[in-house]
Design a protein around this nucleic acid. Structure first.
Length: 400
RNA sequence: GUGAGAUUAGCUCAGUUGGUUAGAGCACUGGUUUGUGGUGCCGGGGGUCGCGGGUUCGAAUCCCGUAUCUCACCCCA
């Protein structure tokens, strides 16, 4: 038997009703914030992800579905959504037009990982990207949107927040940190690799020995430039006045290289090990990195499967009609009446002749509200017999 | 990529120290004497026991390999 590939799943009813409901709600909310739908290809040039997400990241380093297509192009199934949106933004010259552009998207992402609770090789993200606003108010706005969505679905979470610094304060800090790390012995293999490629990621290391070694290291938050420090303070202040709880987590670094300044994650304790339900941050340098004009930008993505895991399946209500015939002669009339009824309602017709009892049984089983029948008597009188399956009333309706 | 546990009917699971034709509940389907359902009663279909090797007179059961699932490491949404 052929099976779906490892870590890939079909979305089937009734579970997929949750999926559709989730998308509907997300769309409704982000459109209220002025975001517009964008869709970009699932397959992109491998270079796009190498240059944006970064070769030092695990995503690009070891988790991409990368292959050479029939035209000898080096291509990748997208492992995340931001890179494609930024590519499209630049390609369509939004950076030259200027102004503010806000987009939302949703769709499948691919990462070649070992499957686990809340982690699949094909998974879905709902994300937003905002271009052209450097004001910290947009950071809060974006966080607020993510929070609103999670709140609608009554999800338990804590908001983790950090700032990663900008082009002014980051390079000198990076140098400082690297020289500190060069003087330390006993870092784990991963950290040694990070040290050269993207040193701030060492703060993200889960190895307790590394964490111990990092205690006296220079901290990000002590080395912000004036702008970063002020903006971060303003954000925290505004979050407080908006009554949004948060935890500043100086070790929150995020695994994608393009982030700068504000970075955040919504973490839920109801999820198991893969506890990040949404994450995002500012990436003011990415547009430029992908050959566009310098444009400030910020976004987030929600892990759809992870949210769905925490939502109850909506109960299916009885609705629509069941049509059936009691004798062969009635089948034509039943077919015709069923088709008529479909102008207004969901209708399912039984193709085989059955006893009234069995028709009622079948109507009940498929969750219809009404059972409509034509037999010999009805044919004689040119009527359709209809029983309301909920309050048990019966009536007849004239037919041609 | 590393580790642990699992895999028997559509689903949830039994299956004795290796021994006849592998079972149950639910689901599905038909009937219950000829027009009244969801909850009665009777019947029926459905399994290469994940897959491939090996041991044995004989394997769902023991051994090896492999795939997939689940959970964790790691990483992230």
């Amino acid at each position: 038997m052929l099976k779906a590939l490892r870590g890939m799943k079909d979305t089937l009813p009734p579970q997929n009703e949750k999926y559709l409901y989730f998308l509907e709600k997300c769309t409704e909310i982000v459109e209220r914030y002025g975001f517009e739908f964008i869709e970009t290809p699932i397959l992109e040039d491998t270079k796009l992800f190498k240059r944006s997400v970064g070769e030092s990241s695990d995503i690009v380093g070891k988790e991409m579905y990368q292959f050479i297509d029939k035209g000898e192009n080096d291509v990748c199934l997208r492992p995340e959504g931001t890179a494609g949106v930024v590519r499209s933004f630049v390609e369509n010259k939004f950076d030259r037009i200027g102004g503010i552009n806000r987009f939302y998207y949703h769709g499948p992402m691919f990462r070649y990982e070992r499957p686990q609770k809340g982690r699949f090789r094909q998974f879905h993200q709902f994300g937003v990207e905002s271009f052209g606003v450097s004001n910290y108010l947009e950071d809060v706005n974006i966080i607020l949107m993510a929070k609103t969505i999670l709140d609608i679905f009554k999800i338990n979470y804590t908001l983790h927040l950090n700032s990663l610094g900008c082009t002014t304060c980051m390079p000198p800090f990076r140098k400082k940190l690297t020289s500190y790390l060069n003087g330390v012995d006993g870092l784990c293999e991963d950290c040694l690799r990070r040290k050269d490629k993207n040193p701030i990621r060492v703060f993200d290391c889960k190895n307790s020995n590394c964490q111990e070694l990092l205690k006296p290291a220079p901290r990000l938050n002590d080395n912000f430039c004036k702008v970063c420090e002020d903006d971060f303070e303003q954000i925290l202040k505004l979050l407080k006045t908006m009554d949004i709880d948060y935890e500043v987590d100086p070790n929150l670094v995020r695994g994608l290289d393009y982030y700068s300044k504000t970075a955040f994650e919504f973490v839920s304790s109801d999820l198991g090990a893969q506890n990040a339900v949404a994450g995002g941050g500012r990436y003011d340098r990415l547009v430029e990195l992908l050959d566009g004009r310098e444009t400030p930008a910020i976004g987030f993505a929600i892990g759809v499967e992870r949210v769905l895991e925490m939502i109850e399946v909506p109960k299916r209500e009885r609705n629509g009609y069941y049509f059936g015939a009691l004798c062969d002669e009635a089948i034509g009339s039943v077919f015709k009446e069923a088709q008529k009824q479909r102008e207004k309602d969901r209708v399912i017709m039984a193709y085989s002749v059955k006893s009234l009892k069995n028709h009622l049984k079948a109507a009940d089983k498929m969750g219809a509200s009404y059972c409509a029948i034509i037999g010999e008597d009805e044919l004689k009188n040119s009527v359709l017999w209809i029983k309301d399956l909920i309050n048990k009333n019966e009536e007849t309706r004239e037919i041609e």
